[in-house]
Amino acid sequence: MNHPCECFPLGDSALLLCFGDRISPKINLIVHTAAKQLLELAYPEIIEMVPAYTTLTIYYDPCRIQSATPYEALKEKMLNTLKILKVDDTSAGNHVEIPVCYESDFAPDLERVAKHCRLSPEEVIDRHTSATYDVYFLGFTPGFPYLGGMDKKLTTPRLDHPRLTIPAGSVGIAGEQTGIYPLSTPGGWQLIGHTPIPLVDFSNDSPTLLKPGDRIKFTAISFKEHQEMEAQR
């Protein structure tokens, strides 16, 4: 199928392919399909690719392109290659279940989120665990997933005063987004739970639990199960 695709230079060693102008699972799937197709072709001039909501950034080495105008040559090649994209679910990644303990020790902001959304804490957990989330892309820190698909009813603004440190594994809500902190960093998200599963492992060649294009579900676990899983790490 034909999908609109625009191309812009991002400096002299990267280009930006743009597939749309709004955040949607459909457009993001086109981005991952394009990335997959280009990865399979393994063009030697391409160093790496970064998908985002609506764009695919291609980092390349202009010295490896035999042309007086390397950008124009690669742009043409990209647009030709991506003229026809077979977009279906096969481009999506793995389904990953992430166990989350929503009990009070790990959920300092759950009451506040519940109050803001006019729900009970149990209803917040219910809605948070019943959705399937798309990993639109990873960014901000290694392994940090930008997720789509949160129940709009759970929308809660960020904290007025960000915390100086948020423990790695914290699950939170910020505006219409939900996410997990892979590393301990400062942040203003409303924390509603914690996962005992590590999201990054720097000793692994594939260092992040999640990949762009994956789909995830949160499953509620008890404090005791959380302790046991953490002990097994």
């Binding site: 930006l16 955040i23 764009t55 980092y59």
Partner: peptide, 10 residues
């Protein structure tokens, strides 16, 4: 802007 790729020198 919808978050997108950056590079050194952006």
């Amino acid at each position: 802007l919808i978050t997108e790729g950056t590079t050194t020198g952006s």
